[in-house]
Lab assay of single mutants.
Amino acid sequence: ETEYTFDDKREADRAAKEAQNNGLRVHVTKDGNRWKVRID
């Protein structure tokens, strides 16, 4: 399990989409004014 934090939602969405394309499970959550992408 890996977690990334992004300031920009577009960057978070791009990272999530890339991980999904690689067959990974992805969870995107909002943390204040930042975005967390957790990859299982």
Results as ranks from 00 to 15, higher is better:
E1D: 11
E1H: 14
E1K: 12
E1Y: 15
E1I: 15
E1N: 11
T2C: 15
T2L: 13
T2F: 13
T2D: 08
T2Q: 12
T2W: 15
T2N: 10
T2R: 14
T2Y: 13
T2A: 11
E3I: 14
E3H: 06
E3M: 09
E3K: 04
E3S: 08
E3Y: 12
E3N: 06
E3T: 11
Y4P: 03
Y4S: 05
Y4V: 07
Y4Q: 08
Y4D: 03
Y4K: 07
Y4F: 12
Y4E: 05
Y4H: 06
Y4W: 14
T5D: 05
T5Q: 06
T5Y: 15
T5I: 14
T5P: 02
T5K: 04
T5G: 04
T5M: 13
F6H: 02
F6W: 02
F6P: 01
F6K: 01
F6T: 03
F6Y: 09
F6V: 03
F6I: 02
F6R: 00
F6Q: 01
D7V: 10
D7A: 11
D7M: 11
D7E: 11
D7N: 10
D7K: 09
D7P: 05
D7F: 11
D7Q: 09
D7R: 08
D7L: 11
D7H: 09
D8E: 07
D8P: 01
D8M: 05
D8G: 05
D8W: 05
D8R: 08
D8F: 07
D8S: 15
D8L: 08
D8A: 06
D8T: 15
D8I: 05
K9R: 09
K9H: 08
K9N: 03
K9G: 04
K9L: 08
K9Y: 14
K9Q: 09
K9S: 05
K9T: 02
R10M: 12
R10H: 12
R10G: 13
R10Q: 13
R10P: 06
R10V: 12
R10N: 12
R10W: 14
R10C: 15
R10I: 12
E11I: 05
E11S: 12
E11D: 14
E11W: 06
E11M: 10
E11N: 06
A12T: 02
A12L: 02
A12G: 01
A12C: 06
A12H: 00
A12I: 01
A12W: 01
A12E: 00
A12Y: 01
A12K: 01
A12D: 01
D13Q: 11
D13R: 08
D13V: 13
D13G: 04
D13S: 06
D13H: 10
D13A: 08
D13L: 15
D13T: 08
R14K: 12
R14H: 09
R14E: 11
R14F: 09
R14A: 12
A15M: 14
A15R: 08
A15D: 01
A15I: 13
A15S: 04
A15F: 15
A15Y: 15
A15C: 15
A16M: 07
A16Q: 04
A16H: 03
A16P: 01
A16V: 11
A16F: 05
A16W: 04
A16I: 10
A16E: 04
A16R: 05
A16G: 03
K17F: 11
K17H: 10
K17V: 10
K17W: 12
K17Q: 13
K17C: 12
E18R: 12
E18T: 09
E18I: 13
E18S: 09
E18K: 10
E18D: 09
E18P: 02
E18Q: 11
E18M: 12
E18N: 10
E18L: 12
E18F: 09
A19S: 03
A19H: 08
A19Y: 12
A19M: 14
A19I: 07
A19R: 03
A19T: 02
A19W: 13
A19G: 04
A19N: 03
A19L: 15
A19Q: 04
Q20Y: 10
Q20I: 13
Q20C: 15
Q20P: 01
Q20N: 06
Q20L: 13
Q20A: 12
Q20G: 06
Q20W: 11
Q20M: 14
N21Y: 08
N21Q: 13
N21W: 08
N21T: 09
N21F: 09
N22W: 05
N22R: 15
N22S: 10
N22Y: 04
N22H: 11
N22K: 14
N22F: 04
N22D: 06
G23S: 03
G23D: 03
G23W: 03
G23F: 03
G23C: 12
G23T: 02
G23Y: 03
G23L: 03
L24S: 06
L24M: 11
L24T: 03
L24Q: 07
L24W: 12
L24N: 06
L24G: 04
L24F: 14
L24E: 03
L24A: 07
R25A: 08
R25F: 06
R25P: 04
R25G: 05
R25V: 11
R25K: 10
R25L: 08
R25W: 05
R25H: 13
V26P: 04
V26E: 00
V26D: 00
V26A: 14
V26N: 01
V26G: 03
V26Q: 01
V26M: 02
V26W: 03
V26S: 05
V26Y: 04
V26I: 04
V26R: 02
V26T: 06
H27E: 11
H27G: 04
H27P: 00
H27K: 11
H27Y: 10
H27N: 08
H27F: 11
H27V: 14
V28C: 09
V28P: 01
V28F: 03
V28A: 02
V28Q: 03
V28H: 00
V28M: 07
V28R: 03
V28S: 01
V28L: 07
T29Q: 09
T29S: 11
T29C: 14
T29A: 07
T29W: 15
K30M: 09
K30C: 11
K30V: 07
K30R: 12
K30A: 09
K30T: 07
K30Y: 13
K30P: 07
K30I: 06
K30Q: 12
K30W: 13
K30L: 07
D31G: 02
D31T: 07
D31F: 08
D31M: 09
D31R: 05
D31E: 13
D31P: 01
D31I: 11
D31A: 08
D31H: 09
D31C: 14
G32W: 00
G32F: 01
G32S: 02
G32I: 00
G32T: 01
G32H: 03
G32V: 00
G32Q: 03
G32C: 03
N33L: 07
N33T: 06
N33Y: 05
N33M: 05
N33R: 05
N33H: 08
N33S: 07
N33P: 08
N33I: 04
R34I: 07
R34F: 09
R34S: 07
R34N: 06
R34M: 07
R34T: 07
R34H: 09
R34Y: 09
R34G: 06
R34Q: 11
R34V: 08
R34D: 03
R34P: 00
W35A: 00
W35C: 00
W35M: 00
W35H: 00
W35I: 00
W35T: 00
W35Q: 00
W35Y: 04
W35P: 00
W35D: 00
W35S: 00
K36V: 15
K36R: 13
K36I: 15
K36G: 03
K36L: 12
K36P: 00
K36F: 07
K36Q: 06
V37L: 07
V37R: 00
V37A: 00
V37K: 01
V37P: 01
V37I: 06
V37M: 04
V37H: 00
R38Y: 10
R38C: 09
R38S: 09
R38D: 02
R38H: 10
R38F: 10
R38P: 00
R38Q: 07
R38W: 10
R38N: 06
R38M: 09
I39S: 03
I39M: 04
I39N: 01
I39E: 03
I39Q: 02
I39L: 06
I39H: 02
I39T: 05
D40Y: 15
D40R: 11
D40T: 14
D40Q: 13
D40I: 15
D40P: 04
D40S: 15
D40V: 15
D40F: 15
D40K: 10
